[in-house]
Design a binder for these strands. Structure first.
Lengths: 216, 216
DNA sequence: CTTTATTGATTGACCGTTCAATAAAGAATT
DNA sequence: AATTCTTTATTGAACGGTCAATCAATAAAG
């Protein structure tokens, strides 16, 4: 066997260079020649390891998504069957993990969001991720409130997270992670406090869950 | 004077064609030849009326922003000094106005957001708009709560609006305008209800009710 | 006639991909 | 230990294609 083991090294280098290049020039002007130069390799190597520019971009998005998934599940596995609030906080914290809140990653995310509307492979990745966030949130809220209410709480929280994140990416001062988390926590608190609000309570009287009363 | 008065007609045509083309192909592939073909004119006309592609894109973003501003202020001028809740609802409604929730406009918005990170003229427009939304919200919340609390309420609501809007643009089923407005209304209600929460009350003293008794 | 409106072929720049050629690292052989 | 040998790694010039901008020429309205 000859010179081997370069693949994982080059892939990491190139994905890193892609993030930096998108950060500096934007997705449209992140040409393979710029990316290759930043990674310190020739352009041909990109096609060799990623089947061209599109493959590299897709791999870059996959990389960020994997980091996000890890950031969330690392926090949640520690929790076991902790109360919903703890899991919701863990999901929030994962979404605002350091790996997701650097300038280059936020910019790349936003670029991919826009691009995913017209690019099938990216669209698939983005939708899988969206649904995962939503259904994780929904499952936790559903532990303490009826399904229709849990759905709305999840929709609201998912939108709030994405919105904080989006505004952080666009704001000149960047994202204030601590404040973003606090605002999301507040939203969780309000939603959980509404569990037994007068309008919702009128139907039943179970102290913890209302497992019998889920009509749409 | 010879043949005159084409400018406003062509400008409207071309902006409309730009929105449709971005909707269909995405910003990166919205070439002047595609836009011109859709508008039924030649490519040269774009440079003639907009000083090139960038000018057309900037004018398109300006056009959407103007519509947004109109949608909001039309609703608010009717209100006079109505209570904060009414103004906040008007701002929400304006942001979810029909002119802002069509597929092509939402897609274009998202594309411009991403692009504005690397393109000065778009960045300026986008930031002016961001600040306008934030400070409008802030001013209304501040009428019934201390400034620091109003700021957080405004930050949260702004993020929620943008997030709902973003997720609507990306979701396969599109944006459910009614539901988005309801979720935003709910957020407003919760924030206004917190006006006299124990933690916040220690400094102030205004007559209000406790424990979730809101009027519509 | 004069000015505005409009065309569309041309031009120059740049981009992604390809591929023949070269380098380098281990394995096999001597 | 020196030598081929073989496979992977890597280069970068060449190619075909596309795009935005330009501009000389034409059309049309007063």
């Amino acid at each position: 066997m000859p010179k081997v083991g370069m693949q994982p090294i080059r892939r990491r280098q190139l994905i890193e260079a892609t993030l930096a290049t998108i950060d500096e020039f934007g997705l449209a002007d992140a040409t393979i020649s710029r990316i290759a130069k930043r990674a310190g390799v020739s352009t041909g190597i990109i096609s060799h390891y990623f089947n061209g520019r599109d493959g590299l971009l897709e791999a870059t998005m996959r990389h960020i998504l994997t980091d996000l998934g890890t950031a969330v599940s690392e926090r949640r596995t520690l929790l076991g069957d902790a109360p919903p609030r703890a899991h919701l906080h863990a999901i929030i914290d994962g979404n605002f993990d350091r790996s997701q809140t650097s300038r280059s990653v936020m910019k790349t995310w936003l670029a991919f969001w826009a691009s995913s509307m017209h690019h099938r492979p990216l669209q698939t990745l983005q939708r899988v991720n969206d649904r995962r966030l939503y259904s994780n949130l929904c499952a936790q809220f559903h532990r303490v409130m009826p399904k229709h209410q849990a759905r709305d709480a999840a929709r609201g929280l998912a939108a709030l997270i994405d919105g904080l994140w989006l505004r952080g990416a666009l704001a000149p001062e960047g994202l204030n992670v601590e404040r973003a988390r606090r605002l999301a926590y507040d939203y969780v608190r309000e939603q959980l406090a509404r569990v037994e609000t007068p309008e919702e309570r009128s139907a039943q009287a179970a102290p913890r869950q209302r497992s019998g009363a889920q009509s749409h």
